[in-house]
Design a protein around this nucleic acid. Structure first.
Length: 700
DNA sequence: AGCACGCCGACT
DNA sequence: GTCGGCGTGCTC
């Protein structure tokens, strides 16, 4: 502690000062505030938002905790233990983030501390020391802690400091780079929506753009960067959340072309812990920032949050895989309601979730001024005449389009699956080939590799089929590697580049080449591709999932958006409403129809859904607790893994709070009353015997 | 999670 | 009478 302001009265006067803290414990029954006395020597240091250590559990053990409130009104009657120590003077839990964490946990029947662990990076003593030293050293001599520092009029230069781009490509009119002016949409509409703290969904402009000399990004990235620059220019912070680091890199490039580097804070899971903590601390300062990151960015402690924007919210990477499993979209919706910031969803393709929000009037639609899409040419699968094309299972029209395009630049070929022939089957009976040891799926990692098991890794050197005793294997699905080989033969003399999850490629030069990429891993290229071939449509659609249609449309739209203006985009082997939506570039139409179907079937997102997994008895109890709530129906329970059952609960949005709180009570009760189970020295149960998960995109 | 508390059986 | 089993529930 430095010399500072003792805000609280010394021990003598008034009632007892009480700190209300949230404990860092995964136990659901501890997810509430606990009262501790503030000893005189810590008065003034124990303020809301700091990390503390408190005695907990009978022995003299200490638990980590965050102070949530400080006051004199103790709601707890018993004797209070004193706070043991303050870990750091930095206010890492802001009131806004606490309210958000509480709301996210309540909505997902989870613990607020689970949200906080995700939202607040671990403390790094070194980084913190440097941060505090910098704070006390130069500009603002005020205490580093909570003190609402004397309001300094912040001046962040919103001007672009990079030269404007020469003739950017992209579908639609040429755009220049301007600070805080969002181009490509009706003039002033984004700006006024941001200023009015509105909520909206926008279709992104297709195409790529050169936002600084030699730096090309998807056109969408420039839109978000311009919106963020406008927000910053008006003295507010902006949070931009993207699905993965590839999108993040593009957006960062776009931001750096408009804003000084100090105005940008970057947070993502790939950062080292010190880097993460450093970026987090930089958000806590008083100057507004543009905060760029993946899922966790929606929890950043932004000062004066003015805009919350999500790119490609339909990407499943926005769904958090850890409890309480909140999707960035839902977190953003809650935060918007609490903070009153503007909220924008930008994407090429519209998810059914966003479509629902538009239909109920929660979001408005802010469309580009000239909604022109890429030139999409649906191509029915047909037996190719050309021998080469047949090799690569490409229809002759698509093959010819690619052949011509290769004269002027690179051609993007999107394929379905990563890896090389991930699935093998018996040549004689056609059944999927299984490992002779563990029954896992067999695959091949390269042309010359010996087939091996995807589970145990055993080489299938002398494999035999368990169904028919056949001994020869054949490919069932064809991955990027194999497609690349075939294309290489179909287009002799052309350079082939492969991009997939294992071999990521951010950008390819604007030279003739075949770029074979799995969906989601497409590199961008300066000026856009001379042609785009969307090859494995049928196979992608074969996946068994409620979301398969909208997922495919999203993958195709994102790939098509990388094409140069007027370049052909060949959609192979797909017809119907999906092909029409891509061809007309009216993805929202598809989402509308899809949502209507889901309403009829009572599937998400027309309703919400959750799974309840656990031992039969607690699951039955939990189900009993929600049966009476209106707008709720329960499927099951049915047997799941050995000893466990699973029930699916579907409920209207309006019943969400009641369902969540009832299930939460069941989880808490189950956690505190010991499971009797097998009395005879059974193995201790490693997992809680009742788990609840809401809004899992993979339920149906 | 730990750990104390408490209501039953078997002992000095 | 008292010791101690482990089932039950609390932790500011």
């Amino acid at each position: 502690m430095t010399a500072a302001e003792p805000t609280l009265v010394p021990s003598g006067g008034a009632e007892r000062a009480v700190a209300r803290v949230v404990l860092d414990s995964p136990l659901p029954q501890l997810d509430r505030l606990f009262d501790y006395a503030i000893p005189p020597e810590l008065a003034g240091a124990v303020v809301p938002g700091v990390r503390v250590k408190v005695p907990f559990r009978s022995a003299g053990r200490l638990s980590d905790a965050f102070v949530v409130e400080v006051g004199s009104a103790g709601s707890y009657e018993g004797a209070l233990s004193p706070v043991d120590s303050v870990v750091s003077p930095i206010v890492v839990l802001t009131p806004e983030v606490w309210r958000l964490a509480r709301a996210v946990a309540d909505r997902g029947a989870g613990s607020a501390i689970d949200v906080l662990r995700f939202a607040i990076p671990g403390r790094q003593a070194r980084v913190e020391k440097a941060h505090l030293a910098a704070l006390t050293a130069a500009p603002s001599p005020d205490a580093p802690a909570a003190a609402p520092s004397p309001e300094v009029p912040d001046s962040v230069p919103p001007e672009p400091h990079e030269g404007p781009s020469p003739a950017p490509h992209g579908v639609g009119a040429a755009v220049g780079v301007g600070g805080g002016v969002v181009e490509g949409y009706p003039a002033g509409r984004w700006e006024s929506a941001i200023d009015a703290r509105a909520r909206w969904a926008s279709a992104a402009l297709p195409g790529v753009v050169e936002c600084a000399p030699g730096r090309w990004v998807g056109r969408w990235a420039l839109t978000l960067a311009q919106a963020a620059a406008h927000t910053l220019a008006s003295g507010s912070s902006a949070i931009l959340a993207v699905p993965d680091y590839r999108d993040q890199d593009q957006l960062q490039t776009a931001l750096e072309s408009l804003l000084p580097a100090e105005a940008i804070a970057r947070t993502d899971a790939r950062q080292s812990n010190p880097d993460r903590y450093r970026a987090f601390l930089s958000c806590l300062g008083d100057e507004p920032r543009v905060i760029l990151g993946t899922r966790s960015a929606v929890y950043a402690p932004a000062r004066r949050l003015g805009l919350l924007a999500l790119w490609d919210e339909g990407d499943p990477l926005h769904a958090e895989p850890l409890a309480p499993y909140a999707h960035s979209r839902d977190v953003a919706l809650l935060r918007q309601e609490q903070s009153g910031a503007a909220l924008a969803f930008l994407s090429h393709s519209r998810s059914t979730e966003v479509e629902r929000l538009v239909e109920i009037g929660w979001l408005h639609d802010l469309a580009p001024s000239s909604p022109v899409g890429p030139r999409v040419i649906p191509t029915v699968q047909q037996a190719a005449q050309d021998g080469f094309a047949q090799l690569a299972r490409i229809p002759s029209t698509a093959w010819r389009a690619a052949r011509e395009a290769l004269d002027s630049g690179p051609v993007l070929v999107q394929v379905a699956r990563p890896g090389y022939a991930p699935v093998l089957a018996c040549q004689s009976c056609g059944q999927a080939a299984r490992c002779n040891r563990c029954n896992g799926p067999l695959g091949k990692s390269s042309a010359s590799a010996v087939p091996s098991c995807g589970w145990c890794g055993a080489l299938a050197a002398d494999w035999h089929c368990t169904h028919c005793s056949g001994e020869r294997l054949r490919f069932v699905s064809v991955g990027a590697g194999r497609t690349a080989e075939e294309l290489g033969r179909a287009f002799p003399g052309v350079r082939v580049v492969v991009a997939d999850g294992e071999r990521p490629v951010q950008e390819v030069p604007a030279k003739a080449a075949l770029v074979v990429a799995t969906r989601g891993a497409e590199p961008i290229t300066p000026g856009g591709y001379a042609a785009v071939l969307l090859l494995d449509g049928e196979r992608m659609l074969a996946r068994e999932s409620l979301r398969v249609g909208e997922d495919c449309l999203r993958w195709w739209s994102n790939a098509a958006s990388l094409a140069a203006p007027k370049a052909p985009v060949m959609l192979v082997g797909v017809g119907g409403p999906l092909a029409r939506a891509l061809n007309t570039w009216r993805q929202a139409d598809y989402a509308r129809g899809e949502l209507a179907d889901r309403r009829g079937l009572r599937f998400p997102p027309a309703v919400r859904a959750g799974t309840i997994v656990g031992a039969a008895e607690p699951v039955a109890g939990a189900v009993e607790g929600i049966r009476g709530i209106p707008g709720v129906d329960v499927l099951g329970p049915v047997d799941a893994e050995p000893g466990l059952v699973r029930a699916i609960v579907r409920f209207d949005y309006g019943s969400g709070a009641a369902v969540a709180s009832a299930l939460r009570s069941a989880v808490v009760q189950n956690a505190s009353t010991r499971r009797k189970g097998t009395p005879g020295k059974g193995a201790p149960r490693p997992q809680p015997s009742l788990r609840v998960r809401f809004d899992d995109p993979e339920i149906f």
